[in-house]
Design a protein around this nucleic acid. Structure first.
Lengths: 224, 224
DNA sequence: AATCGATGAAATTTCGAAACTGATATTAAA
DNA sequence: TTTAATATCAGTTTCGAAATTTCATCGATT
């Protein structure tokens, strides 16, 4: 195995990806020994990676009783979705206020790129397309990227990634196809039309719809 | 030293307090060996504490080149202050919308308690009063505590603690006395009067004043 | 004189094992 | 049968040292 970076960095990235993708189930115990064996490293790198993930809220650190994947719940999802609407519409408003052509163009380009990829690699059943996920995140981050506050952008990233995890957990139970491109286009169109209220309303509608679909996909979310 | 908790927890708390208080200067290198000796523990607890602090943004983790206290700058302070105004006025508005008497009372009580302590333990020169700091934080958190989103509250806490660090760094250079109680009372009065715009304006004025004082206290902030 | 490369020292990263803590199973007593 | 105390066990936490990387110094070459 190549070690272009440190072992702790690769353990961190791998663990984080496993939590976000849902491969590690919410509430699942994360024993050091087990992980050490799986990732073929010592206990120290695993342990340090877990500490970083704990500080970021992806895993829980139960003092002297090890680590566990952070739980999920319907209430937590609702709270997350509400927060996302509040914070991201705030960031979008601030981004639009500055009226910078370069930013507007970056949003248009992000939508264009997203429109040229399919969400699922398979047409018969859902099969995650990493390229679509990457471009989707890029579009959402582009929308808030001109707000002028790296703090606010960071918060949006956190919220996006948390929501992504819920999406992944839901998709494992039931994938419901919908016209997401139209929803994204509605936001971008309002941005181009210099209509802040319209853009925020479209973004809110997009998140509300996403949240409802996730909540409908499965009761209890199987978490803790 | 007592070890009621784990060594990593105490190392974490101590390091965090040292960064926030300014005892550890921005940009300062944090050598493992040096800290290991100071805290009288092995390298592992120190290292894990630093990882958590790095994830929270208090220290930088320079891959394979150790850790360093996060730098500060005037621009970063301005960005922080602006973000704080945006996010905390948002949280305050949402807190007020629910119109819960219990919450309103908690805010009034928090102000009352703060009003009965002095900011400085000494009347001739500035000498931090930990009790005042605790109650001050409690008041600000009470103001946003009814917004209904633990995420938003968490963001406010992060921003508050970051701003606290800047205040501490500034106070080391020059302490300018002012009537802070009146500023806080203006916010709480508007809350009680059910005047969201007034409350947010008062809060914004409070932060703007604080930021200006910090910026005036010393050029460059001595960081990096 | 300046650049490049090699050598050595200092520091970080990583490992393997020891020490400690909390949980479980077993036994004895009520 | 239930409760309480004890012993055992698995797993976390911590340590000390080895392996690896970076940084600085010095010398040789252009």
């Amino acid at each position: 195995m190549e070690t272009s970076t440190t072992l702790i960095a690769s353990a961190y990235e791998r663990l984080r990806a496993d939590v976000l993708s849902g491969r590690l189930a919410p509430g699942q115990k994360l024993g050091i020994e087990s992980l050490r064996g799986q990732y073929d490293t010592g206990a120290t790198p695993v342990r340090e990676a877990l500490n970083r993930l704990a500080a970021e809220g992806w895993v829980l650190h139960l003092e002297q009783r090890g680590f566990a994947v952070a739980p999920v719940s319907e209430d937590a999802l609702r709270e997350l979705a509400q927060t996302r609407i509040w914070v991201e519409t705030l960031a979008l408003r601030k981004s639009m206020e500055l009226k910078q052509p370069a930013w507007e163009e970056s949003v248009v380009v992000a939508l264009h790129r997203l429109s040229k990829t399919t969400r699922s690699l398979s047409s018969t059943r859902y099969n995650e397309n990493p390229e679509w996920e990457k471009l989707h995140r890029a579009l959402h981050m582009a929308l808030v990227g001109n707000c002028g506050s790296r703090w606010l952008i960071g918060f949006c990233e956190q919220l996006y990634d948390q929501a992504y995890r819920y999406r992944q957990l839901a998709v494992k139970r039931a994938y419901k196809s919908r016209n997401e491109l139209a929803e994204h286009r509605a936001v971008v169109d309002a941005v181009v039309a210099a209509d802040p209220d319209g853009a925020c309303a479209a973004l809110e509608a997009h998140y509300t719809r996403t949240t409802r679909i996730i909540l409908e996909s499965g009761k209890g979310l199987g978490g803790g």
